[in-house]
Design a protein around this nucleic acid. Structure first.
Lengths: 242, 242
DNA sequence: GCAGTTCTGTTACATCTTGTTACCTAGACG
DNA sequence: CGTCTAGGTAACAAGATGTAACAGAACTGC
């Protein structure tokens, strides 16, 4: 079972990054999107398991977007909105929403409801009555989250620093999805204070992780560079519950 | 589509009949139940599409019932409860609920949420997403899109830059079809801003790719020039699904 | 506390990528 | 053969990325 891929649609950058961060921490892949065109592009480009859709998108309207999507897409949609009156919720369900969450929301509750919808959509087993994923495998490597240890394909244990481990987790939560330095930094700095310096910390961190998990760090096969964009874990990841 | 059959589990007779009435009015079959034994009897006796489960059932506890049901049943469950605090909701989702509705509730909203869960539960779990072609072969060369690597007929891996790889992909997608510089540029610049300068970037790029995949770059056999028109990949291409 | 070790961000410089420019060659055509 | 034009490509420049070296922070064992 691969990691669920969610689309986070919100025109507020802060809200989007906040939600993305929480989702990443909970083991989801979260892709940002701002317009209907971007949503459709993502749907065509690859598997999307669920869309978190803001109702008020500047001049756009989330419900109308959802209604149009529903004409040819059955992807699960959860509305996230500051409009919490019953008739507004009703409008959401009428255009085919799977759930409707009022802002401000409890992040843990959001995650729980995302899991519930995903479970019902039969794309991922609900983690509710199962253990949280504890083991990730990729390209022969194994990351055991419980023991917090990494083993190479040959079985040797590789010591990663805290920061390197955090980076690996972020990547494992988003296999094959290019992440910008900003996204990575945001996911690493859970207490993101927004003071994002334009330093090269992420580059150096990536280089250090490469030095430990790449066969030939000068020619990285796993942790690839997306020039002008960021980095991507260029392999599939399988997960197992403990 | 037959009429959905719901189980209404509540120990309060008034609440039960009220919910049942609303459900009937909305075209559902609503069966009352009060205990776990009754629930299981119904599940075994016939099809049940969804359970509306009160959290506080006298001396029984709805969440525990749900947790036990989940061991062998995947029937959708919506909790209906006067307990609306976040941690109480979380507890509901943790035992596998599909939704959690606080009392008192708006009957129309209840119906809408029932419909949403039913829709999601009854949808076909197909939604197979098509894999993209992963391997291209041409004139002995192999381009593995998954690994993003190119191998010469002799088996050597050839390192292409991102831009060169993109060009190769465009050509592989259009074998034997001459492409103008404008068409190539448009295909390469996904975020085509329309500002197409008449520069020689494509010519130089073609030259660089030739330098890597042509036996004799001065006498190109694969990436031919169509004088006055553009360039063409002068070979057949076979593709394989992963 | 304290000294040694490890971790992590910054900096500086090397390297890689890619578009532009300038100049050259190959064909076309008379 | 001379001229003209499209195309080839070396050289350059700008920008992005890789990484060694350094220093302060954090941590460890005592």
């Amino acid at each position: 079972m691969t990691i669920p891929r969610l689309l986070v649609v919100d025109d507020d950058e802060d809200m989007r990054s906040m939600m993305t961060r929480f989702l990443h921490r909970s083991g989801f892949a979260a892709l940002p999107a701002g317009t209907e065109a971007e949503i459709r592009a993502h749907l065509e480009a690859g598997r999307i398991d669920l869309i978190l859709l803001d109702v008020m998108l500047g001049d756009e309207n989330g419900t109308e977007i959802c209604a149009r999507l529903r004409r040819d897409q059955d992807v699960p949609v959860i509305f996230v909105s500051a409009l919490s009156a019953d008739h507004q919720r009703m409008a959401g369900y009428e255009v085919g929403a799977d759930d409707y969450i009022a802002k401000p929301f409890n992040p843990d509750l959001l995650i729980a409801r995302v899991r519930a919808v995903l479970h019902r959509a039969q794309r991922t087993p609900s983690l509710a009555y199962r253990r949280r994923t504890e083991t990730y495998r990729f390209a022969g490597w194994v990351y055991d989250a419980r023991r917090d240890e990494v083993r190479s394909p040959e079985g040797f244990e590789v010591a990663l620093s805290r920061r390197e481990t955090a980076l690996l987790k972020v990547l494992l939560a988003n296999p094959r999805i290019p992440l910008t330095r900003e996204e990575i930094a945001a996911a690493l700095d859970v207490a993101g204070d927004g003071t994002d310096q334009p330093g090269r910390a992420i580059d150096v961190l990536v280089g250090r992780l490469r030095g430990k998990i790449e066969r030939n760090p000068r020619d990285p096969q796993l942790l690839r560079t997306e020039r002008g964009l960021g980095y991507v874990l260029a392999t599939d990841v399988t997960t197992e519950e403990a």
